[in-house]
Amino acid sequence: MMQDGLQSDANSLDVLLSLADLYVQNDLIEEAKALLKTAIEQNKGAVEPYCSLGKIYLKEGNRERAIKILKQAEMIEPENKIIQDLLQATGKEEVVEELKVVERAEEKGELEEIEEVSGVPLEDLIKRELDKLLKEEGIMGIILVDEGGSLIYAELNLPLDEESTGAIINTIYNRINETVKGFDLGDLEEVIFELPGGNIFVLGTLSIRFIVLVKRDIHIASLEGEIREIFERTKAILEVD
């Protein structure tokens, strides 16, 4: 609430940076990171939020992420001493080597692979994938739960409780799975619910359920390919079958 108020009142970079500092001092690291990412989006020419975010990543030992963010800052202000000091602080020669690796990977389009092994939070990787799907017309939300119905990730454009919606759909999915197994039809892979208020597309494995809520008037077959593709990538990120 406080954060929203500050952003809507002034969008002040100083205020955002001060608040991020306050979050860091109070060990609210994820909140600080989110705030700094917002600050970067709103102030693309300012290097301060990049530096603050870079410091957090360095503190966490996430060198690849720190290098990437500091490199972006360096592109804005190549001679900035704070940025150079931060890069120095990580060990100059190693940083240069890391930069080369990141650059090579970027050129080859392999950055995602590097991030996967470099300890970037899974949530960020999943969010990146699911955001692509959420941009498709007619997609109202995505819920990712484990086989027990516990929420892994959710993004809903509907006034629904994410946890209970995921749990309910998972319960029904599991019940249908028992039924198909009872008739020797193998493991359940996909369920489409066509309901009065919209459609629900569920893709499942032994350990996760990928639930996509779609508007009623959207033909689900037109989105099926895209949904499957993102589901496969999400499985790879989570390293599940």
Partner: peptide
């Protein structure tokens, strides 16, 4: 289960696709 959990008493359809068959 759908009627009770989702509060949808009727008029819905389900396509469940499994490895060796479908319901």
């Amino acid at each position: 289960e759908i009627a009770n959990q989702m509060n949808i008493p009727g008029n819905f359809s389900i396509s469940a696709l499994a490895g060796n068959g479908s319901i």
